[in-house]
Amino acid sequence: APSLQAPHPLPTLLSFRWALWFFKNDKSKMWQANLRLVTKFSTVEDFWALYTHIQLASKLTSGCDYSLFKDGIEPMWEDSQNKRGGRWLITLAKQQRHTELDRFWLETLLCLIGEMFDEYSDEVCGAVINIRAKGDKIAIWTREAENREGVTHIGRVESWAPPPFSLRRIYKEHLGLSQKVAIGYQAHADTATKSGSLTKNKFVV
């Protein structure tokens, strides 16, 4: 059983902390002015203290984001540690906001702070949840889009959480689209320069 006395440092403690960011869309301001650092943490206890005191993602208004990134990496493509990277992206159906979104996001957060991506956890920069009217999105951002081995290891989404909590499994079972639903990896460079609304997938799992 966890001890009450000693805080449990996250695996990342020696090199960095995690930082939670909040974005609220205010069109009268520049994009960056709408992005706020909420806090940083480095223990399991502080993670839960934060998680239980902030609004659930499903209760945010459309246009808002939460981002959890390693301290020192800003949640934007332009950051030097993101610009060559990309994201594994899950787009959720509208009705999933009230049934599964919060669980999916929590599972994603646990995978990040627990460093559950084996030797490729260093490739992970952070994760983002976008609350959007047309469909919410959850993404894991990685450092180097050309690192096929690392990206595909992270993208074997079963490793985001063991069965029966696998996001990929839950997602596909819920929608009953086992062969049609893909979780795609998109390079930020392609997302930034896209002409239409769709970005091509560099990898698919």
Partner: peptide
């Protein structure tokens, strides 16, 4: 190998009282 925490370990802390 690299140090990791699994989800069950992390979830054990979710509803623990916090010492302030």
């Amino acid at each position: 190998g690299k140090k990791q925490y699994d989800r069950e370990f992390l979830l054990d802390f979710q509803f623990m009282p916090v010492c302030i």
